[in-house]
């Protein structure tokens, strides 16, 4: 049997996540389709990062189910997703070796890894830094390297958790451009952010969370023009919501 062309859509059904009996996410049902850039918004503590980790499979839900393309699960699904964290965790070796590491994981033959790794670095403007130890790169360079590493894995879905919150505006912009590259190549983007401007620039659809609940799931244009819920209106107006 041939593997399907994409692991999407991702369906969450009545997903809840509780720690010590305290629900942090509750009753979340949504469906994420391919080709659409989904931005998760919401005030601090709304559960954005948590939702991302549940989708990616780093956490298991306490209630409900997370399903890829019907019922795909396990290793094949894992290999077709990637995640970029707020603070990238790079290995103590050169930039290019970090990319080669992921290629090796993906089973790329040894001979082809060098060329593919350089190609990924070039795409994100890191070719000149290939031999530099990853840990001594600047914050923006490190984040771009994390993106290049994700690129090398060739995922169907890329999750990004506040990827620019620790970066200066120029570096943040270069990360945004990288995200657009992924999108253009057909990778589904699911990203959390604090930055409303960034959300406006990148979003096709918005998932709005508040207090661990899904309040709105709307096309970006509609959401930013006139959010349906009072929480989202207050949030966009810059008021304190929780």
């Amino acid at each position: 049997m041939r593997a399907p062309d994409t692991i999407l859509p991702l369906e969450l059904e009545r997903v809840g996540f509780a720690v010590g009996g305290r629900p942090l996410l509750d009753d979340i049902t949504l469906r994420l389709e391919a080709g659409v850039r989904t931005i998760i918004l919401g005030p601090n503590g709304a559960g954005k990062s948590l939702l991302l980790r549940l989708c990616h499979g780093l956490l298991a839900p306490s209630d409900g189910s997370v399903r890829w393309h019907g019922a795909m699960a396990g290793e094949p699904v894992r290999r077709r997703q990637a995640m970029v964290f707020q603070r990238p965790v790079l290995l103590r070796r050169s930039a290019v070796a970090n990319v080669r590491y992921v290629l090796a994981l993906g089973g790329v033959p040894w001979r082809r890894r060098g060329a593919l790794a350089m190609e990924a670095l070039e795409r994100f403007g890191l070719a000149a830094l290939a031999q530099r130890p990853a840990r001594v790169l600047s914050g923006g360079e490190q984040q771009r390297l994390a993106l290049a590493r994700a690129w090398a894995a060739g995922p169907d879905v890329l999750f990004l958790d506040e990827p620019t919150s620790a970066l200066d505006p120029a570096a943040a912009l270069s990360v945004e451009m990288a995200v657009q590259e992924f999108h253009a190549s057909g990778t589904k983007i699911v990203m959390t952010t604090h930055d409303l401007g960034q959300a406006r620039r990148l979003a096709d659809e918005v998932v709005f969370l508040s207090r661990g609940r899904l309040v709105e799931l709307a096309p970006a244009v509609e959401f930013f023009k006139g959010p349906a819920s009072p929480q989202a209106r207050a949030f966009l107006a810059g008021e304190l919501v929780c």
């Binding site: 290999r79 990637a82 965790v89 994981l105």
Partner: peptide
């Protein structure tokens, strides 16, 4: 490293070596 390695799908032996 835990989350990152799990995200990359690194196996037990690979985690140890890394």
């Amino acid at each position: 490293y835990g989350e990152q390695l799990r995200s990359l799908g690194v196996s037990g032996l690979g985690r140890m070596a890394t």
